[in-house]
């Protein structure tokens, strides 16, 4: 019906994230952020951590949100799931988004639970017509319920499926075409997945539709080997951004122009200043590209 043509009728005007670098908001840093008011473009939270009734998490988030742009990033919606979307969870998400009015909302091309069980990981989806239809209908439902465009993040994967008939980039492009969602380009995930599946990460970025990309993620990975002795990279979020990922990021920026960029760190959380330094490094690249593209236009 009409809703499928214009799913965001009645949606409030949504502000955008500034074209700067941001960092993940960690409870370890709540007080320091309020006391020191660091210069950072935005903060990102994982939605599920704030789906609690009250207490310190909301106390600090509401104060930090008054001062900084905010991105809300879901990890539990299971958009790639065979199970129907969890309506209670979608309602909780809507409540959280109403409360904090984030500049951006994103989720993953992955599943995280099956039936009644939540597995707490971002699990891979085979790429074929049936999964495409399922993912698209889930994204339609999310965007209708939240009355806003969501960004979909490309996954880091460790296995592929013999049932897949499409390349990941092809699958994602078709999702964008059918649902009108935006993309969160996780450059670390591109690198990790391409190394893990013997592909060229630069080709991957060239194959992706770039216009819908509204945010970039950067993170660190861990290095392992598979049973054949080939590299197997793990999206650990527990290390600084690797040089190969910085290089790929620069390449992506040259193709995309400047895009809000998040430094993700979920394991071995370092001092706030360490994360801010990494954000500033990303911002220097962003601004370099910015200047470069302005000069090109002039």
């Amino acid at each position: 019906m009409i809703t499928s043509l214009s799913p965001f009728v009645g949606a409030a005007v949504v502000r955008r994230l500034p074209v700067r670098a941001g960092i993940g908001l960690k409870p370890e840093h709540f007080r320091e952020i309020l006391a020191a008011a660091p210069d950072v473009g935005f903060f990102e939270i994982h939605a599920e951590n704030y789906m609690v009734d009250g207490g310190p998490f909301h106390h600090y988030l509401s104060r930090i949100r008054e001062r900084y742009p905010l991105s809300i990033h879901g990890v539990g919606l299971s958009i790639g799931g065979e199970s129907p979307l969890n309506d209670d969870h979608l309602d909780r998400l809507a409540t959280l988004l109403d409360r904090y009015q984030p500049e951006s909302f994103s989720e993953h091309l992955a599943w995280a639970g099956h039936g009644e069980v939540f597995l707490n990981d971002l699990l891979p989806v085979p790429y074929h017509a049936a999964t495409l239809a399922r993912v698209c209908s889930h994204i339609d439902r999310v965007q209708d319920r939240l009355r806003r465009r969501m960004l979909l993040e490309n996954p880091a994967t460790y296995v592929e499926f013999s049932a897949s008939t499409m390349a990941e980039t092809e699958f994602i492009a078709e999702i964008v075409r059918r649902t009108g969602c935006g993309l969160l380009l996780d450059v670390n995930n591109v690198y990790v997945s391409c190394v893990n599946h013997g592909r060229n990460p630069y080709d991957y970025i060239r194959a992706l539709p770039l216009d819908p990309v509204a945010e970039i993620h950067l993170a660190g990975f861990a290095r392992e080997v598979d049973a054949a002795g080939d590299p197997l990279l793990i999206d650990s979020h527990g290390a600084p951004v690797a040089q190969a990922v910085w290089d790929l990021y620069r390449y992506a920026l040259e193709a995309l122009g400047p895009v809000p960029t998040l430094i993700e760190r979920d394991n071995d959380i370092p001092a706030l200043s360490v994360l801010l330094d990494e954000a500033h490094q990303a911002e220097r690249m962003l601004h370099g590209i910015d200047r470069h593209s302005r000069e090109a236009r002039a």
Binding site: K26, P27, I45, H46, A47, E48, N49, Y50, F57, V75, G76, N120, D121, L122, A156, A222, R223, E224, L232, I234, D235, S236, H237, G238, E264, D266, N267
Partner: peptide
């Protein structure tokens, strides 16, 4: 917060 993207949590893998 307990909902994190802690892939490889705790150890490498």
């Amino acid at each position: 917060g307990k909902n994190d993207c802690k892939a490889g949590a705790g150890t490498t893998c």
